[in-house]
Simulated assay, not measured.
Amino acid sequence: MSRAPALWQRVPAPVVDLVLVSVAAVDVWLNMWDHTRLGLALAALGCAALAFRRRFPLGVFLLTLPIALMQDVAVAVLVALFTVAERSRNRRLLAGCVALSALAGSIPWTLTEYDRTMTLVIFVYNLATAAAPVLFGQLLQAQRDLARRLVEIEEAREHEQVLHAQAVLARERAQLAREMHDVVSHQVSLIAVRAGALQVATQDADAKEAARTIRSLSVNTLDELRTMVTLLRASGGRATELTPQPTLADLHKLVESSGTQAELSGELPPAVGTPAQRALYRTVQEALTNVRKHAPGATARVELWQDGDDVGVTVTNTPPTRPSLSLPGSQQGLVGLRERADILHGSLEAGPTAEGGYRVRLRIPLSTD
């Protein structure tokens, strides 16, 4: 659920910049002690530069430094420091900017009658003053990062709930398929056998015709039951879903829209059946989802392959480039994939790689159908 932005966030950026330039100019006019032409020009340049602080934060900060030589605490310098801290993740750069600002503010005091101790105190005071906007900028940056991660967590949770529901439905349908195959099909087969025996043994024409009809209907029913069992085993979508199930032709779109930097390679023969294609698709889908959730910044490689009479897919990702948050999970994704592979007489392997990444590998017989 999205939150409405705060009131200050709804103010247009040009208006904010205009206000900051005006406040900095008033601050300079009231507090600076160097009213020479050069001093006024440098002060005007530093204040006007604040209008471009979003595009050139470091350059604007350097242009505001001369103002620190002309007054004790300069609003323009503090605003420029805040902008650099808000947009940079380089801690060394930020520490250098703080030290540079404190040094610029302390230089005028070295030219007065104050002793070294007093000058050092003034430097420490300026250092603390310069550190305040930097800390606030870093805090705002961390808040934005956290907000983005919370959105990613919510999307991942919703996606995982959908996958979990599909996995549960697939297991229920697989169980129903086994019941139909083991019980119903067996009984219908007995009916067909008994009807065939009666058709051969009886001498009555009407009984022979009735037995032939029963046997023919039983055979047709068995064919329909086999088709239904195949559909139930291959199905993993919603019960009311009438749209076509995903196939290998949809893999390119899945990889491109996965939210992860991934590449697809390899091809499979046209003889791969529909249930196997769906299993391959679901495996890639679950593996890329796990990469996005548990390995932020990692890249992934999806490889389709054929090994003799078996076909399969291998999804391998590199180690994450940034720490991941602990996400709630049902731990049913890979379990559902293994059950799907078992139904198709295949196998699924999943585990970490020696390089610190993760690999998921599905193998299915080519003659699954």
Rank of each mutant, 00 (worst) to 15 (best):
S218M: 01
L225M: 11
S235P: 02
V193N: 12
E209H: 13
V188W: 05
S185A: 08
S185M: 03
M180A: 07
E172A: 14
V183G: 01
T227A: 08
T213F: 02
T202E: 14
E209M: 14
S185W: 12
D206W: 07
A174E: 09
E179T: 07
A207S: 06
T221K: 04
R215W: 08
R178N: 03
L222H: 03
S218A: 14
V184Y: 15
A201R: 13
R238H: 04
A197F: 11
A234F: 12
L231C: 06
A177L: 03
H186A: 09
R173Q: 14
A174K: 02
S235W: 15
Q187S: 01
E209Q: 14
R178I: 04
K208T: 15
E224K: 14
G237L: 05
R178W: 05
Q203S: 12
L169Y: 05
T202F: 01
L225H: 04
H181T: 01
A207F: 14
L176Q: 12
S189T: 15
R233L: 06
Q203F: 12
V188M: 03
D182A: 06
A195W: 11
T202L: 10
S185Q: 08
V193P: 00
M180K: 08
A197Q: 14
S189W: 15
I191S: 02
M180H: 04
L242F: 00
E224R: 13
R233A: 09
Q187L: 13
M180E: 12
L190V: 13
L190A: 04
T213D: 02
H186S: 08
G196K: 08
M180P: 00
V184A: 14
H181G: 01
V219L: 08
M228S: 08
Q175Y: 05
R194Q: 12
A201H: 15
I214Q: 02
T243C: 08
I214L: 05
E172K: 12
R173G: 11
R233N: 09
V168D: 10
R212E: 09
L176S: 11
H186E: 07
T243M: 14
A192V: 13
A201L: 15
R178H: 11
E179N: 03
L190P: 00
N220F: 00
A207P: 00
M228E: 09
G237S: 04
E209C: 06
I214D: 01
R178Y: 04
A195S: 11
L169Q: 09
A239L: 10
L222R: 10
T227G: 08
L231W: 12
T221Y: 06
A211V: 02
I191A: 03
A205H: 05
H181C: 01
I214S: 01
A174S: 11
L169N: 04
A174Y: 00
T240E: 08
V184G: 00
